[in-house]
Each structure stands twice: as C-alpha cells, then as structure tokens.
C-alpha cells in the first residue's frame, strides 16, 4: 500500500507557477500558484510547458478571456515565459520537459513609462 502511494507520488510533478505584470488578473489575482501535474501526459510522454499552458487554461484560469493568455495554440505575443529565471527560448520553449520543483513565471510585458 505504502509502495503504491510512493509510486503515485512519483507520477506527480509539483511546480511553482507565477504570474506578474498584470497577468495575475486573469488568474483570480493570485500571483503564486503551487500546482501538481501528472509527470506523464495521455500519450505517456513527459509533461511539457505546453501541457502546463493548456492545463492552466482549462483548470486554473477562471477568467473567460482565454485570448488574453493564449493565441494560436501558444502563449500570446507580449508574454514572456521564464523557466527557472531564464527565457524559455533558452530551454526549448513549449517542448521543455517539466522537472520537479520547477519555477515557471509568466510575465506580461509592460508598455507604460
């Protein structure tokens, strides 16, 4: 029984997902979310940032204006995605495979000044 629980725990990845630059508005004004995601997707492949974005849209985002977060199947222009404080482009963008305790930060770019 204990073993079963253990293996179940291994199938889950816990993440810290943050929103800033005003994006938190779309996520119930909560800037920091602790999430547990399955380690593998439906096709038994490692969970990626793309999976996370989809998950956020379907399960976390209460606001119905999805287009302010995603467009054309990816994060909309003007949102910077940082994986452990590095531009996600340096990590493989959406296909980056999530690791336990990763910190994913979504920043909306600002234009005021």
């Amino acid at each position: 029984m204990a073993e079963a629980e253990k293996s179940e725990a291994q199938d889950v990845i816990t993440l810290k997902v943050e929103f800033t630059g005003g994006l938190e508005m779309l996520f119930s004004n909560i800037k920091e979310h602790k999430l547990s995601l399955p380690a593998k997707d439906e096709q038994d492949k490692a969970t990626t940032v793309n999976y996370l974005v989809d998950y956020l849209c379907k399960k976390v985002m209460k606001d119905r204006r999805k287009e302010l977060f995603v467009q054309d199947g990816t994060v909309r222009p003007g949102i910077l995605v940082l994986i452990n404080d590095a531009d996600w482009e340096l990590e493989g963008e959406g296909s980056y495979e999530l690791q336990p305790e990763d910190n994913i930060l979504f920043v909306s770019t600002l234009h005021g000044g």
Partner: peptide
C-alpha cells in the same frame, strides 16, 4: 528578438488606464 510579434492592442494598458505608482516608475 524577444518580442517578434506585438501584443494584441487590447491587452496593452497605458499608465492613464492602469495607473502607476510614482516610485515604481522612478526606480526603473
């Protein structure tokens, strides 16, 4: 390089619409 596509205009807030704290823009 960072923003090859501009954000949709309706997502862009100005200081007049969204507000701004003086020291925040000052520090920047």
């Amino acid at each position: 390089c960072m923003f090859p596509k501009p954000p949709p205009p309706e997502s862009v807030l100005t200081c007049g619409e969204g507000g701004i704290l003086g020291p925040v823009v000052g520090v920047m």
